[in-house]
Design a protein around this nucleic acid. Sequence first.
DNA 1: TCTGAAAGTTTTCATCC
DNA 2: GGATGAAAACTTTCAGA
Lengths: 158, 158
Amino acid sequence: MPRPELDDLDHALLGLLQRDSARTLAALGDQVGLSPSAVQRRIERFRETGLVDRTVAVLDAKRAGALLAVCLATLDRESRAEHERFRAHVLASPHVQQLYNVTGDWDYVVVLATTGVEEHRVVADAVLKDAPNLRRYSTMLVLDPVRATLDLPTRPAP
Amino acid sequence: MPRPELDDLDHALLGLLQRDSARTLAALGDQVGLSPSAVQRRIERFRETGLVDRTVAVLDAKRAGALLAVCLATLDRESRAEHERFRAHVLASPHVQQLYNVTGDWDYVVVLATTGVEEHRVVADAVLKDAPNLRRYSTMLVLDPVRATLDLPTRPAP
DNA sequence: TCTGAAAGTTTTCATCC
DNA sequence: GGATGAAAACTTTCAGA
């Protein structure tokens, strides 16, 4: 899949879509100065190339009564196969909201989403304590999810 | 805003909407066993109560060429006002994708999204190095965003 | 009060310019 | 990139449980 060339209008549209994708093609067109059909064609290209992966509803964590936890984990052996084994184990849980392989003292950042402390215990034990090839891990409970988005910049800020 | 009572169908709908909100009301209705209008009314209630905060397009971080970084930060003074000052400073940057106040040795987890290492340097300096009342911070660059969602459970897993 | 069905309106999609 | 007609979806209204 070739990397699509993005112009100013594409960047503007991607910014709008990341903040609110429920707008109509006409409304988006008004914002960036394009006809609805032109907007539609660009969005379709975003999806075809995989740049836009999906469209989702974002719940309010507080109203949903959810408990988030940011966990840090380091593996014992560092081989490719061991990493794969660890990832497969962690990804098997639907409570794993985010999983990042990172640089530094820790190998992975794992964000867990549960319905409360009781469930967190059970899930954290299953996902991390029982994980294969784990050397050590640490858990930080989220007291306040001040901001939670998946927004990405598509070009350097001016 | 009173907490809405959610039944099994609501939980099912919320799960579907968090994974893919681009489906039609008819398709959603087929999945859970409701008419399109009934589905619509429930979704409208989700929005009115604020349980569903917004609908967004999720970009593929690799294809977007984005660089993520997970930073940990600890404040110097722990007063409410100092927390507010720190948060306001951090939230002012659009590159702050996520910000969590957490328990443990660190006060905050900050996820930064930039277009590459050059921009990351600039942004990390502006957001964290120059942050008011910061005692210390640490940065982990994301080598691989294995999973990135905002999915939340709405009820305990069986 | 909530659900389901039907009519009216808007949006989206495909084709052509 | 824009414009048009056709198809689909959404919104509103109303009747029934």
